[in-house]
């Protein structure tokens, strides 16, 4: 390696052999990638808990739901809403931190992706409100809102998967679309149980797999 040494580098730290240099290069790039993946694991975990606990609460808040115990509806619905709000706020905070300090071409993609959550969420919410004002029953609303939410998540995740070539979003997006489309067949409140187990489960399993992979890289 000494043949490659020039006065310009002689002042720097001692040079390793090519194998060490390549390992150092790959290690540093993996470190950068991991620093972007770690917050996503937290996001999936937070959403997983919100879906699992929140929908189980809704299911248990309905007399036709959980056969083992019932939660008062006055507790179940606020609990669901609080979990949802916590998840939305953490998503915004964590999402903004993932690519912090970086500006340029990719900030446009990131901004559109971030905005699409609030824009699509508002659109689905308004549609549901319009349907209720035109006579949609509570039973139907209980089918519409969670499915609308899941279909929205699925669609945006597929967009995210395409933008960042991200397989975790591809898998989650497909699960969300399937669960959003299929859960209403279970009726209400059975659909809540499907969302808790399949939707919440998908988030938690994805978070666990990614966390295990990160730990292996360390």
């Amino acid at each position: 390696m000494d043949d490659n040494r020039t006065p310009a580098t002689a002042l720097d730290e001692p040079l390793g052999d090519p194998r060490e240099m390549l390992a150092m290069l790959e290690e540093q790039q993996r470190r950068v990638a991991d620093s972007q993946i770690a917050p996503v694991v937290w996001l999936y975990f937070i959403w997983g808990v919100a879906w699992f606990v929140g929908f189980l609460a809704l299911w248990s808040g309905d007399v036709d739901g959980n056969p083992w115990f019932t939660i008062p509806a006055g507790v179940a619905t606020p609990l669901f809403i609080v979990l949802l709000v916590i998840s939305i706020v953490s998503s915004a905070v964590i999402g903004l931190r993932i690519n912090r300090g970086v500006r340029g071409m990719s900030s446009f993609s990131g901004a559109v992706y971030g905005l699409s959550w609030s824009v699509c969420g508002t659109a689905f919410g308004l549609l549901g409100t319009a349907l209720i004002s035109h006579g949609m029953s509570t039973d139907l609303a209980n089918l519409f809102f969670p499915s609308g939410f899941a279909l929205m998540c699925g669609t945006i995740y597929l967009g995210g998967a395409a933008l960042w070539r991200d397989k975790s979003q591809l898998v989650l997006g497909l699960v969300m679309l399937v669960v959003g489309a299929a859960a209403p067949f279970a009726g209400s409140p059975g659909n809540d149980l499907v969302f808790a187990l399949v939707g919440g489960g998908a988030f938690l399993v994805t978070a666990a797999v990614m966390a295990a992979r990160l730990r292996r890289n360390r």
Partner: peptide, 13 residues
Amino acid sequence: ELDPVIHASARLK
């Protein structure tokens, strides 16, 4: 030869 500008651990990183 390996590029001397990059071939130093700090600059490689």
